[in-house]
Structure formats: structure tokens, C-alpha cells
Amino acid sequence: MDELTGVQALERKHPDLPMQPGHVLRREFEYIRHGTLSWFINFDVATGQVIEPSWGPTRGEQDCVMHLKRLVESAPEVKRWHVMMDNLNTQFRSPRAMDC
């Protein structure tokens, strides 16, 4: 599981210019900002596939718990999960915080 904090939600202001023979794709530099988002993303380490991503304006302990609940509920056939996390600031204050 990884956290991406303060990711800018951007939209290109103008479409890409079409490629032409002898020229690379041309892209305008202007974009529209839509604020920032925080992400929780799980990766299957064997395949590199993303499993059940979550995003929102915050990334606190409750956001992390809700994300992990969604992850577990996404595959009811799985009997055991191994989750590796860094300790940015969503580490749990008590073992009971993870009552999923």
C-alpha cells in the first residue's frame, strides 16, 4: 500500500496538436488546476496491478481504515492479506483501530 499526498488534479487547457511527418507530438503547456487529492493505492507485488485505489481530500487514520475495509471487501474469497505500509502519518494509534 502506498500513499500519494497532495497530487495535483490537472486538466490540459488545450488539446494536443496532431502529429505530422517529421515532428513529435506537440502539447501546450497551460493547464487548469482542480485542487489536490490524496491517494491510497494497493499494488499486487506479483503482477504490479493496482488493487482498489482510493482518493479524497484528506489522508488521515479514518481514511486509511476505510480504504483497507474497501480492499478487504473487494475480494471476499481472500482469507489472508499481507499489507506493507510506510509510516507517513496514517499509522494506527491502537491495534483496535483496524477492526475490519
Rank of each mutant, 00 (worst) to 15 (best):
Lys69Cys: 04
Phe92Asp: 05
Ser38Tyr: 05
Trp81Lys: 12
Asp99Tyr: 07
Arg27His: 02
Ala9Cys: 09
Val78Lys: 13
His82Cys: 12
Met1Gln: 08
Leu17Pro: 00
Gln91Ser: 07
Val24Asp: 00
Trp81Cys: 09
Thr36Pro: 02
Val7Arg: 12
Phe29Thr: 05
Val45Tyr: 08
Asp86Leu: 09
Thr58Gly: 12
Gln49Met: 12
Arg33Cys: 10
Ala46Gly: 12
Gln8Pro: 04
Arg93Pro: 05
Lys79Val: 12
Met84Arg: 06
Val72Tyr: 04
His23Val: 00
Leu10Arg: 13
Leu71Cys: 06
Val7Cys: 11
Pro53Glu: 01
Asp99Leu: 14
Phe43Glu: 11
Leu88Phe: 11
Val83Pro: 08
Pro76Phe: 04
Asp44Cys: 13
Cys100Trp: 10
Thr90Glu: 03
Glu73Leu: 13
Arg26Gln: 06
Ser74His: 07
Leu88Gly: 09
Asp99Met: 10
Gly22Trp: 00
Phe43Arg: 06
Leu10Lys: 14
Val50Asp: 03
Gln91His: 15
Lys13Val: 03
Pro76Gln: 05
Ser94Gln: 12
Arg12Ala: 14
Pro76Met: 02
Ala75Asn: 09
Asp44Ile: 02
Val45Leu: 15
Met84Trp: 13
Trp39Leu: 15
Val24Ser: 01
Arg12Pro: 05
Glu11Asn: 08
Gly56Phe: 11
Trp55Lys: 10
Thr47Leu: 07
Met19Arg: 04
Gln91Leu: 06
Asn87Tyr: 07
Gly22Asp: 00
Thr90Cys: 13
Met19Tyr: 00
Ile51Phe: 06
His67Lys: 00
Met66His: 10
His82Lys: 07
Val65Gln: 11
Phe43Ile: 15
Leu37Tyr: 03
Leu17Ala: 04
Gln8Val: 06
Ser74Asn: 05
Gly56Asp: 09
Ala75Ser: 09
Ala46Cys: 14
Ile51Val: 15
Gly48Val: 03
Pro15Met: 01
Ala9Trp: 06
His23Ile: 00
Met85Cys: 13
Glu11Gln: 15
Gln49Arg: 13
Val72Trp: 02
Ser54Glu: 08
Glu77Lys: 03
Cys64Asn: 10
Met1Val: 09
Arg96His: 13
Asp63Arg: 02
Met84Asn: 08
Val50Trp: 03
Phe29Ser: 09
Arg70Thr: 06
Val65Leu: 11
Ala46Thr: 13
Met66Glu: 15
Arg96Tyr: 14
Met1Glu: 08
Ser54Arg: 07
Glu3Gln: 15
Gln91Thr: 04
Ala9Pro: 01
Pro95Gly: 08
Phe92Gly: 11
Glu28His: 11
Pro53Ser: 02
Ile32Gly: 01
Leu71Asn: 07
Gly56Lys: 07
Ser74Phe: 04
Ile51Glu: 11
Gln62Thr: 12
Ile41Lys: 06
Met85Gln: 10
Glu52Met: 08
Ile41Ala: 11
Cys64His: 09
Asn87His: 11
Ser54Tyr: 10
Ile51Pro: 07
Leu4Pro: 00
Leu17Asp: 02
Met19Asp: 01
Glu30Gln: 02
Arg96Lys: 12
Gln20Lys: 03
Thr47Asn: 09
Asn87Gly: 15
Met84Glu: 07
Glu30Tyr: 01
Asn89Lys: 13
Asp86Ala: 07
Leu17Cys: 01
His23Leu: 01
His34Val: 04
Glu61Asn: 06
Val83Asn: 08
Pro95Cys: 04
Asn89Phe: 10
Tyr31Val: 02
Val24Cys: 00
Pro76Ala: 04
Glu3Arg: 14
Leu88Arg: 06
Leu68Ala: 03
